[in-house]
Structure formats: structure tokens, C-alpha cells
Amino acid sequence: MKILVCISKTPDTTAKIAFKNGNTQFEENGVQWIINPYDEWYALIRAIELKEKDASTVLHLINVGGAESDPIIRKALALGGDEAIRVNTTNLSDSFYVASQIAEAAKSGAYDLIFTGKETIDYNGSSIGGMVAELLDLPYVSLATKFELNGTTATITREIEGGEEVNEVPLPVVVSCQKGVAEARIPNMRGIMSARTKPLKVVEPVAADTLTSIKSFELPPPKAGVKIISTDNMAELVRLLHEEAKVI
């Protein structure tokens, strides 16, 4: 069994979001970087659990990014995984370009399973898994909440419109993971020590098209200010919601 987990570097969930250069670039100054939570808590941990069950499993991690991704890759390796690949590029805003890099690496690795998080908390595209699957012509199960392996078949519970369904799919398959698939863990000392010596291969990107470009960013307009209503005047709150805000 060979598993590839895609991990992205994102700003910490509490990071202040600001932009620079005429709102064309994210202000990275003072930002703490983390492994995208969906990639770490669900995709990576489930893959580690599968390796714990079957020690012959080979677990690789892949990140598309510059050298500044290395600390989060080491952290991921401290949680588990045998080695990591970093595709060395800072061209990260177009999902097609990023997915093309992952697909290229995946082709030569002959993976049975490719895991991603359901989306990244920065670009929120939820596109990489589907794009990689299409590039490799593999089935894609999105928004998995449970993942079990029975030989060469995966049994996956996934979120659909208004509920869940159970899918059975032969490997290889691409799966995007979310809450339910695994429980987050923290790395232990042994993991942290061993991560230092695990291979982190840096490869150069392949030529791929960029289909989109970000023109500018915008922050939401500030709220006009809160209207405080006294606790003994709920009739007034209801009137405001009905007549002023027109939402009830």
C-alpha cells in the first residue's frame, strides 16, 4: 500500500488577514504558518492510522511551495510519514498549476491512495483533490467523514446534499477528508526527533498552465456598529429585525 498525502501551508487560524501592494498580495509579515488544518487533522492522521495498522504501508507527503514550507513539512513528518516531496515553486494561487505538480509526482509514485483535506483555509478552492483525480483519471470521493480499507477496496462515507452516503470504490482513488475521518493528534518527542532525518526531496516544477490570476483582494466592509437592545425590550428587537433588517 502506497499513500500520498497532500499538505498545504496556510496562515494560522487566528492570523490577522491584511493585504499589501495595493491589495494585490497577502501581508505575510507576522503571520504564523501551519499545516492546513483539514490536511493535518484528517487526511494526514487517517493515513498515519492506516500505516499503524499495516506497517508495510509506504506513506509519502507532498507539498507544493517554496523553502518556507519546510518547517510545516517537518512538523507533518513528526506526526508520521516516511518521506516528503516538496515541489519547489512559489506560483501557488492557481489550483490547476498546483494540481498539475501533484499529479506529476503522483504518476511516478504509483500511489494506491491520494488524500487531501477538503479545502485549504486560505484560498478555499476545494479543487486540488478533484483536479488531481481528473489529471490521473481516477475516481474521486470528496468530503469523506469515514474511511476504511478492505484489501484493495475502500469503504468511504461521504457528505452529500442533505446527508451522507457510503461508497465502495476500488483503489487507486483520490479522497478529500474532513471532520470524522480521524481525530487530531500532536507530535511526540520521538516523532519530532525522527522527522529531522526523514528524507525531504525537493523537486523542480514541471511546465503547466496557469488558468487564473488574482487581480486583487478585498476585506469585508466594517460593520456600522452594533445596536444594543435592552433585555426587557425584545419586542423592539423583533420589530427591528422585521422592519429595518427585513430578515424575519
Binding site: 488577514i17 493585504f19 486560505d122 478555499n124 488574482i214 487581480k215 486583487s216 483582494f217 478585498e218 469585508p220
Partner: peptide
Amino acid sequence: VFSGKASANVS
């Protein structure tokens, strides 16, 4: 983008 903390104009 940024989980609702901002938006991006994408060409």
C-alpha cells in the same frame, strides 16, 4: 478567500 475573512477578485 481566507475562510470568509476576505474576498479575491479572480481573473
